[in-house]
Design a protein around this nucleic acid. Sequence first.
DNA 1: TGACGAGCATCAGAGGTCTGATTAGTCTCT
DNA 2: AGAGACTAATCAGACCTCTGATGCTCGTCA
Lengths: 146, 146
Amino acid sequence: MSFDQRLGSHLKRVEQDLQAAKTAAVRPAGLTVPQYAALFVLDEQPGISGAELARRCLVTPQTMTTILRNLEAAELIERTPHPLHRHVIETRPTPAGRKALDQADERATGVERRLAAAFTDEELDVLRGLLARVSETLTTDPILDR
Amino acid sequence: MSFDQRLGSHLKRVEQDLQAAKTAAVRPAGLTVPQYAALFVLDEQPGISGAELARRCLVTPQTMTTILRNLEAAELIERTPHPLHRHVIETRPTPAGRKALDQADERATGVERRLAAAFTDEELDVLRGLLARVSETLTTDPILDR
DNA sequence: TGACGAGCATCAGAGGTCTGATTAGTCTCT
DNA sequence: AGAGACTAATCAGACCTCTGATGCTCGTCA
């Protein structure tokens, strides 16, 4: 089976192009794409835990720890122990973080808008539907055991 | 604009699921997905240069250097200077590399087959077409300025 | 009360990915 | 011959991502 026939190649290319576009979009705000995603969720739900944040952003808690470490070093978020559950840490954007988010969000949304503009609503529905089925096929039909 | 509406979320999830499935598929052979991709191309075109390999695998030359370093450390590839162009290094799979590739390829191809089986040929064409248009939109319509 | 399971946070380590910069060989055109 | 453009390979550094392992806190239940 050649590379071109594989759905994986097409998906990889698209994901890579999208990643590149978004990286270029959020870079002027001093953010990376994962940092932008984390800030985005944090802005909507301040005080959320790192573990919950990881679930929303589709990454592991360990990965989120890394992202949050960098965000905190840049003083874009603040982390304080939860008043009741002391081992839970509440995370919130700082004013600087909110500013960076706004700046990044405008441009990132622009990428999505531009993308949406290139397709009809029906085409977008078809695409989303097909992608959902790919995901479903991959997750409900494990390839682990023979 | 919410996360769920963004095409990026769908693409990220699918790419992530596919990555997970392929990782699980090639792991028993002792390979990572990028290593598998590199070996796959190398097996078809032995003696190819690292730069060319990078282009085929859709990664930067620097990234390919990293991948090749690990493959060479595992003695799955051999690297020798090109007889004419001394600054070019020819890379070839070792017998062990070819064996690992065969083992990984069977399972990786299984993922693709299973995926293809979940769709009609027409649906696959539609999906490939839409993905190509996404890619085209992203690359021909830069979001860099303004 | 005290043990246990669940969830949170994080360290350790490996690997991949990029941007930016450097070094060196090849080719072409004057 | 020599200048300049191009390509190959690689180092340096930053970030993200995963798996595996650890420690801590909380709630539950015997």
